[in-house]
Amino acid sequence: MEPIIEVKNLVKTFDSRGKKITAVNDVSFNVFKGEIFGMIGPNGAGKSTTFSMLTTLTKPTSGSIKISGFDALKQNDKIRPIIGIVSQKLSLYLLLTARESKV
């Protein structure tokens, strides 16, 4: 059985005031059809950054992500229509309609 989500050696680093910060360090996992998947961990563990990369909103520094066989770096236009996420934060653009705020 092929995974619906396939993450291999995912890394995300940021530059903050000239200092390199690693938010996600060599994360790998698979999610298969029918599974319910979530991530838990302390603040600053990289959960939100990982989901931001899975939803194609942020590009990884290195590693690979496949969603339903589509490469997240090269085929994000194929991935966005088939995924969904419920964030803990309210993320609305108050001046846009729902149709206008599509990513």
Rank of each mutant, 00 (worst) to 15 (best):
T97C: 13
K66P: 00
N25A: 03
K19T: 15
I82W: 15
T50W: 05
N30I: 09
N30L: 10
P81F: 10
T58S: 11
S16V: 09
K47C: 01
K20D: 02
I67V: 03
R17L: 14
E6K: 09
V86N: 05
I67T: 03
I65T: 00
P3C: 02
G38V: 05
G84H: 05
E2N: 13
G46V: 06
T13A: 04
S68Y: 12
V24L: 01
K66C: 00
S91H: 08
L90K: 09
I83M: 01
I83D: 01
Q75V: 12
A23Y: 02
L94F: 15
K20E: 06
M1H: 08
S28A: 15
G34D: 12
Q75M: 13
K102D: 09
L94M: 14
K20G: 02
V11S: 06
M1C: 14
V7W: 00
T97F: 10
S64I: 11
K74M: 13
D26N: 10
S91I: 11
K66F: 04
V31F: 02
K12N: 10
K47S: 02
K74E: 12
L96P: 07
E2Q: 13
S68Q: 07
G84E: 03
F37G: 01
K78F: 14
F32R: 05
V27M: 12
V86P: 02
R80C: 08
E100A: 08
G38I: 04
R17C: 10
I4M: 07
K74L: 15
F14G: 00
E6I: 15
D26R: 04
L90S: 10
F51M: 08
F29T: 12
I21F: 10
I67N: 02
G34W: 05
L10D: 03
G44W: 08
M1Q: 11
I82Y: 06
S16A: 11
V11N: 10
F51E: 07
I82R: 09
I79D: 11
N76T: 11
N9M: 06
I40Y: 05
L90I: 12
E35L: 02
K20C: 04
I21S: 06
R99M: 13
N76Y: 13
L57A: 03
I36P: 01
L73Q: 12
V31T: 01
F51D: 06
